[in-house]
Nucleic acid binder design. Structure first.
Length: 139
DNA sequence: GCCAACGTTGGC
DNA sequence: GCCAACGTTGGC
């Protein structure tokens, strides 16, 4: 299994919206960036991801699971854009903030820190374990 | 609200 | 195929 991070502006699509979709999940659509799209094409059923709120909050707030592999993005006719579906698994007990991540030597190399604008990004297993520990959830 | 970084677009 | 212009993102 691989690990990922999905970034969203809470004002557009937040963790509460994701939770409301339950086990049905929802398309992670609207991504118009090749790098992000390519990562989604690599995802497998059951892969786990962090749900991260950008902008004001800047924190990991939940855990999601890939529940449909890459397929055409229903919000566009442009065949270039694919996306996966994800569903909420569990809310974190403690949000892990960007400040915490930057301050943690084990996490300082995360894509989130190095390339803050990439909206879908891979997370290493070590990073996954570390953030889960900080968030108070079972990895 | 500002600005830097970056990715995409389109003209040549 | 290059590169300038432009738009968007996201941290501060």
């Amino acid at each position: 299994m691989r690990y990922w991070l999905f970034k969203s502006e809470p004002s557009t699509w937040g963790w509460n919206d994701q939770l409301a979709k339950g086990d049905t999940g929802e398309e992670w659509n609207g991504v118009r960036n090749y790098q992000a799209r390519n990562f989604m094409r690599e995802m497998a059923l059951g892969d786990r991801g962090f749900f991260y709120h950008s902008q004001k909050e800047r924190a990991v707030v939940g855990i999601v699971e890939v529940c449909a592999t890459s397929h055409p993005d229903s919000t566009t006719d442009d065949p270039r854009w694919d996306c996966v579906d994800i569903k909420a698994v569990v809310s974190v007990n403690a949000p892990v903030t960007l400040d915490q991540i930057k301050a943690d030597p084990e996490l300082a190399d995360m894509v989130l820190v190095k390339n803050s604008r990439l909206s879908v990004q891979p997370v290493t297993e070590a990073e996954w374990q570390r953030i889960c520990a900080l968030a108070g959830v079972d990895a």
